[in-house]
Nucleic acid binder design. Structure first.
Lengths: 340, 340
DNA sequence: TTGAAAGCGCTAACAC
DNA sequence: GTGTTAGCGCTTTCAA
């Protein structure tokens, strides 16, 4: 027969030991301003002595808020989210908020709507770092911040009231493309995929090419953004334009897919062809790959998203906040001037 | 001035609309056995009509359990956890449990003990898929299942009562090593790192080598298990034993680090040297890397962990459950017979 | 600055 | 089978 667990001390036990009322303990916990130092000390000591932990359930029930924010990630396989999350938490934690993280792919696989899941959890706000299905964000009663460049159905987009914090993906792709142009490349292809950031990155690439008087060559428009998609798009690009000397990929994994396509054709990186990725993921930093990549500063995107949320909690009527962070290019070994 | 949100319907509203009592609604929600179909239908209809969502906070408070299990992951950068999580959720979701996921690295960075965090959340159980700091698991009042091979302080280990579900890491490394031996390799090095699985994998490698009458060559014992660590260990190995023709790495990222070290020395994979990874991560499947790797079936580890937990909820007195799943080898392009 | 008291929405005996 | 009745542990007016 299993021993019954010792019941956890409640706020009531703390109050009794400290010789004060429940309400006073509650005030100390939320470190309210008007509490005398003597009483505060006494309460803190009692909490310590009892090993008291407040019950989030009771607190949520009484206060009607969970102090939890739902974070919707696109795909746990793409480690882009790790920095985003670190940034979010660096602000949320000290403010007493908890991040509840879900992965869109995983949720979709289990056949449920992740936003609904968060709503069922009664989160106080949502951070969306994924392209959600059309309409899923309508009528959410909680503040929403969209982190990263995202694509919504046109209708939803108009109706959606949300704050937006993102890296400037178009600018990032422009930086990547201009880097190749500056190195002397003229024949540069782009590997894209259908996603919110993908569309912006493609635009940046196209702008840079046009500004330099070069023809944009875009492949993979109908595909996804995985390594396999990058490989497929690169194959199509190379078959159509074998003379290419530069490739700008919509992200790092696609760039790795391109690497395989190039090697299969006997082309060397960067001697024959230069390759640029996007996201500056850990992948790009691996010595074996050494990808030049665009850093979108996702940690700062996360932190700024959290700050925006806290500001909106303070003032729900605040006008929509939109912020684009400036990306930077990280040059590694996958780019070089074209062969003379 | 912001509009006040419409108050969410409560169980009471549902009861009223359905013309039954609160308790009956509660019974329907937990689909209890003895409810007449008529009433059940009425309640379900009312729930639907009102768009009612039960309040987890109220439910947790009243029932004294959160129906949440805390999942401690080692490092979000290592996508090993994605499959583990998918497996866990495939069982937990239908049973009405929620997984709350934390990353040991991230928590450590914010200076807090993740297990404490889970305890503060009042989770009903813990799944540990990381090497927790010594002593952190002592005196946890909730069921624990350790997923994967883990290392605990010796003292804690003795006291710790937990169920264990893991891939057989030693066997996996043995499979990898035997694969190289069978291909004809005689001079095979191992790249290890300090971690729970690392120690087991090293053991498997050593056993296979000894069984074949070969000398084990282990490097990286004092290091970590990242790409950089794999690179460093491989450099040490190659400097000490330039004639090596096979490398067994403790995981896939370390194998990628080794790839860089080999290339720097002008060695080709697999023509000059064969490389085997471990975990069969997405990395291993990238065409550009095409790593032969050991699949530890982490999805099944997750599912079995969840099943174990549910069983223990049913019967807390159940004897400790220990299960090792048999790994399998996935052969790709990074291994081949040694040059004649 | 502190205490008393009324719930928050739900579960779980227990009675009918 | 179904309803009644206490709370679960905390927050939050409102008085004192």
């Amino acid at each position: 027969m299993p021993t019954d667990p010792i019941p956890r001390p409640t706020i009531y036990d703390v109050a009794q030991l400290a010789g004060v009322s429940k309400s006073l303990v509650s005030l100390v916990l939320r470190d309210a301003p008007h509490v005398s130092d003597v009483r505060r000390e006494a309460v803190l000591a009692a909490i310590e002595e009892l090993g008291y932990r407040p019950s989030p359930a009771a607190s949520a029930l009484a206060s009607q808020r969970t102090r939890t924010v739902g974070v919707l990630i696109d795909d746990f396989h793409n480690p882009w989210f790790v920095e985003l999350l670190a940034g979010l938490r660096s602000i949320l934690d000290p403010a007493g908020y908890t991040a509840s993280v879900a992965d869109l792919q995983l949720e979709a696989a289990s056949g449920r709507n992740p936003v609904d899941g968060f709503l069922a959890q009664h989160v106080d706000a949502l951070v969306i770092a994924a392209d959600p299905a059309e309409g899923t964000l309508d009528g959410v009663g909680a503040p929403i911040v969209v982190a990263g460049t995202r694509e919504f159905g046109a209708a939803a987009d108009a109706a959606l009231v949300a704050d937006v914090v993102a890296g400037d993906d178009a600018l990032g792709a422009r930086l990547a493309t201009e880097h190749l142009i500056r190195l002397g490349h003229r024949s540069i292809g782009h590997l894209t995929g259908s996603s919110g950031p993908g569309a912006q990155r493609r635009r940046g690439y196209e702008e840079a090419m046009q500004a330099a008087g070069l023809d944009p060559l875009v492949f993979g428009e109908r595909g996804g953004t995985s390594e396999a998609d990058g490989y497929a798009a690169a194959c199509a690009l190379l078959d159509a334009h074998p003379g290419i000397t530069g490739v700008v990929a919509a992200n790092d994994v696609m760039a790795v897919g391109a690497l395989a396509a190039l090697r299969e054709r006997g082309l060397t990186v960067p001697a024959d062809v230069s390759v640029v990725g996007h996201d500056d993921s850990p992948l790009a930093a691996y010595r074996y790959l050494a990808l030049t990549s665009v850093d979108g500063h996702s940690r700062e995107v996360g932190a700024e998203s959290a700050r925006t949320l806290l500001a909106r909690f303070e003032d729900p009527g605040m006008p929509p906040h939109r912020k684009l962070l400036e990306p930077s290019l990280v040059v590694r070994g996958s780019t070089a001037p074209p062969r003379a």
